[in-house]
């Protein structure tokens, strides 16, 4: 009985440590909702479509951080595929793409795979860029999906060759 009392604090401490590790691991992998991206960084599709049309969007590196099957069917002209943001491999593609850019380079990310509140990619991609020190990152808010909020509106669209 004495033995169990002596080991109790140690066991409790070990259990607490294990729980904290699990929580930390969970936090690392849990997808933040897209709504966690600050409102000041959000760009409306209509506003960006106007910039694509007048050519000023070309000054910004536009990255699709969603899924390849979606990008191949339709994407913003001039944008590049760098995803998906919900996987470690996808985030590495994103990190590699921006590795040589100045930290104040303008970057726009977008997805549109699912409704905005349920998108698994946007917040992860945004947070990865911020963690790398990029200070001029914006995110296109696509409320329903890329088809409804971009293609169906008649905005400029390209597809994979």
């Amino acid at each position: 009985m004495k033995h169990s009392h002596r080991f109790l604090p140690r066991i409790t401490a070990s259990l607490l440590s294990a729980c904290m590790l699990l929580l930390a691991a969970n936090a690392a992998f849990a997808a933040q909702p897209a709504s966690s991206i600050p409102a000041a960084k959000l760009v409306q599709p209509a506003d960006w479509a106007a910039k694509v049309k007048d050519g000023t969007a070309a000054r910004t590196l536009t990255l699709h951080v969603g899924f390849r099957t979606m990008f191949d069917q339709a994407h913003i002209p001039g944008s590049e595929y760098a995803g998906p943001g919900n996987t470690g491999a996808g985030l590495q593609v994103l990190r590699d793409r921006v590795a040589n850019l100045a930290k104040d380079a303008p970057i726009l990310i977008y997805c549109g795979c699912c409704p905005w509140e349920r998108c698994p990619n946007m917040a992860a991609a945004h947070d990865a860029l911020v963690a790398l020190g990029f200070t001029n990152v914006r995110a296109m808010i696509i409320k329903e999906n890329f088809g409804t909020d971009w293609v169906d509106k008649g905005y400029p669209t390209a597809k994979a060759q």
């Binding site: 390849r68 099957t69 979606m70 069917q73 339709a74 999906n145 088809g147 409804t148």
Partner: peptide, 12 residues
């Protein structure tokens, strides 16, 4: 992607 396009596209 290619199959989806045959059925009108799946963009979400």
């Amino acid at each position: 992607a290619k199959f989806a396009e045959q059925l009108g596209g799946v963009l979400g």
